[in-house]
């Protein structure tokens, strides 16, 4: 960018005049700094001499402008993991018992005696064995009872168990479209292969007419994309892609992201007496999962400033 030309265009003066005046301003800053004074450039910041160069301290207003995408975002405290209870003084007196492993410093840690180890493992082995037997029995029973035509007559999971997220009334959902507005590849900017992969689970379920009871999980198969609305009651994490003080504009952003195939939400947040509306995409059960997706897509599908927020 030629600063002289840019200034000349804005002030409608000759580039030579603008360049000369700019040079004068810069010379004035350098002179003041060299004399040990603080040279202030209005609405930008202050310059001071340090060594042979200049140091710059930006104005609070300028720092605020460049951090506008993150305006009003507080630090989020993360709860400390619950401490693991340590076994102490539980051994019966006179009985043979190995010391708890955590009680010994790592350098002096000794392996447990073989009998103690086998005693400790016994309940686990029994539990795993019982689980395998139960699963095998269930599979056997299911195979015997299932006839070729029974699958279509069997009631779907949504009729017998808790309603799936698609059954949630639209009025109870915030800032999301009804589930019926599933996006076709042509309606999105995504490549056809990606859109196909995205809608594959729903399409498969619709084509086969079957509903797997195991698929009735609280979180969606694809946490980032799809027509399934974000259910704030489920909690989890979302990726914030925009923050606005105006609700309508925030919802406009959310609609734009939704049209690109993302699951969106608008989360209001009270800040200094005002309300900030954060536009989030996706709903992830784990913070790590959300951060991984954010890192993978940031700069491409997601903006550089995208960050993870607990819903």
């Amino acid at each position: 960018m030629d600063l002289g030309h840019e200034i000349a265009q804005r002030l409608r003066c000759s580039p030579e005049t603008a360049a000369a005046l700019l040079e004068e301003i810069v010379r004035d800053i350098r002179r003041k700094a060299t004399q040990g004074e603080t040279a202030r450039l209005r609405n930008i910041g202050a310059f001071e001499a340090r060594g042979e160069g200049l140091i710059f301290e930006p104005d609070a207003g300028l720092a605020e402008i460049v951090n506008a995408p993150f305006a009003g975002l507080p630090a989020i405290p993360l709860a400390a993991p619950a401490p693991i209870p340590r076994k102490t003084d539980e051994a019966p007196q006179g009985g043979r018992s190995a010391p708890a492993r955590g009680d010994l410093p790592s350098a002096r840690r000794k392996p447990l005696p073989t009998r103690a180890r086998s005693r400790a493992r016994a309940p686990w082995i029994i539990g795993i064995g019982l689980a395998i037997v139960a699963a095998g029995a269930w599979l056997l029973l299911a195979n015997r009872m299932e006839s070729p035509g029974a699958q279509s007559e069997r009631p779907s999971a949504s009729a017998t168990s808790a309603p799936a997220p698609q059954d949630t009334p639209a009025s109870s959902l915030q800032d999301t479209a009804p589930a019926s507005t599933a996006l076709s590849p042509a309606e999105t900017d995504q490549p056809a292969s990606e859109a196909k992969a995205r809608i594959a689970p729903d399409t498969l379920a619709a084509a086969t007419g079957t509903t797997d009871p195991l698929a009735a999980r609280p979180y969606a198969d694809d946490p980032l994309r799809g027509a399934e609305p974000i259910d704030r009651a489920l909690g989890g994490y979302t990726i914030v892609v925009a923050s606005e003080t105006n609700e309508q504009r925030a919802r406009g952003w959310a609609e734009g992201w939704r049209k690109q195939g993302f699951r969106t939400t608008v989360l209001p947040h009270a800040q200094d007496g005002a309300t900030l509306y954060r536009v989030g995409v996706g709903q992830f059960a784990l913070l790590e999962e959300a951060a991984r997706v954010r890192d993978a897509l940031m700069g491409n599908a997601l903006p550089q400033g995208a960050w993870v927020l607990r819903i």
């Binding site: 840019e6 002030l11 005046l21």
Partner: peptide, 8 residues
């Protein structure tokens, strides 16, 4: 000019 510089 100073103001325009700040704006730019």
């Amino acid at each position: 000019v100073e103001q325009a510089l700040a704006e730019i």
